[in-house]
């Protein structure tokens, strides 16, 4: 670990292996321990279908609820901007697609790198604004605990180091690229054991809410 290239090789080699193991095993444990638990059988006669209602709710809960939007437009708009920006940076930047292709064999076309660059810049600014709001808004501040700030940090760091690496703002390049990969590995390790799991569990939760309401014949 004496040179920047050694560091890059470590994060790209053993470091990535460790992060991948923790990430995959962590997520599977977290999902299966909930799913295997199951639900009590419902013997009541269903008044409607589960599938359609479940899928519909997956979509409707993704759209902002008008009341929430009116009460806190900043949180809603900011939340959308950085989530979408994060996804674009993660999944449409060609070097990332290349990594996914090498890992699971799935590949798709990317978008122009300088477009990703602009999106990443907007994402960064929004994430900082979101943190500022969390720290200054009295209610949000009261509701926030260490896990919230940790989640913010491990989400922010990959975007920031990615931006630094793209623009080669830290010399030498293997060092900044290594820092970027390391920050993603930290995110991967922290991910299954924090509220970041929502990226997977939101599907189950929303589907279940919709399906349960659908079965009872009520609006979800």
């Amino acid at each position: 670990m004496s040179t920047p290239v050694d560091f890059l090789l470590w994060v790209r080699g053993p470091g990535f292996d460790i992060a991948l193991v923790v990430f995959i095993i962590g997520i599977l444990i977290r999902l299966l321990e909930v799913l295997i638990l199951g639900r009590k059988p419902d013997y009541a006669e269903p008044r409607g279908g589960e599938l359609g209602a479940g899928l519909r709710t997956l979509l409707t809960r993704t759209l902002p609820e008008p009341g929430t939007f009116k009460r806190s437009p900043f949180t809603v708009v900011g939340g959308y901007i950085w989530h979408i920006g994060f996804f674009i940076s993660l999944f449409l930047f060609v070097p990332h697609i290349e990594l996914i292709d090498a890992t699971i064999g799935l590949s798709w076309p990317g978008i122009a790198s300088n477009l990703v660059d602009a999106v990443a810049a907007v994402t960064l600014v929004t994430l900082v604004a979101m943190l500022f709001s969390r720290l200054t808004h009295p209610v949000k501040r009261l509701l926030s605990g260490p896990e919230d700030y940790l989640s913010w940090l491990v989400t922010f760091l990959p975007v920031m180091t990615g931006y630094l690496a793209y623009h080669r703002m830290i010399d030498p390049y293997p060092l900044v690229l290594g820092l970027h990969i390391l920050s993603v590995e930290i995110l991967m390790v922290v991910f299954p054991f924090t509220k970041l799991m929502h990226a997977f569990t939101f599907i189950i939760a929303r589907w279940y809410n919709g399906a349960m309401a659908g079965r009872r014949g009520v609006q979800s």
């Binding site: 990535f16 991948l20 193991v21 995959i24 095993i25 962590g26 599977l28 444990i29 977290r30 295997i36």
Partner: peptide, 27 residues
Amino acid sequence: LSIPDSDITRQAVYVAGAGVALGAVAG
């Protein structure tokens, strides 16, 4: 430049297997 050096596809499959087993135990 962005690709890890090890055979991560195979590793991911093994790890997923281990994850399912551990998840089943946790369940």
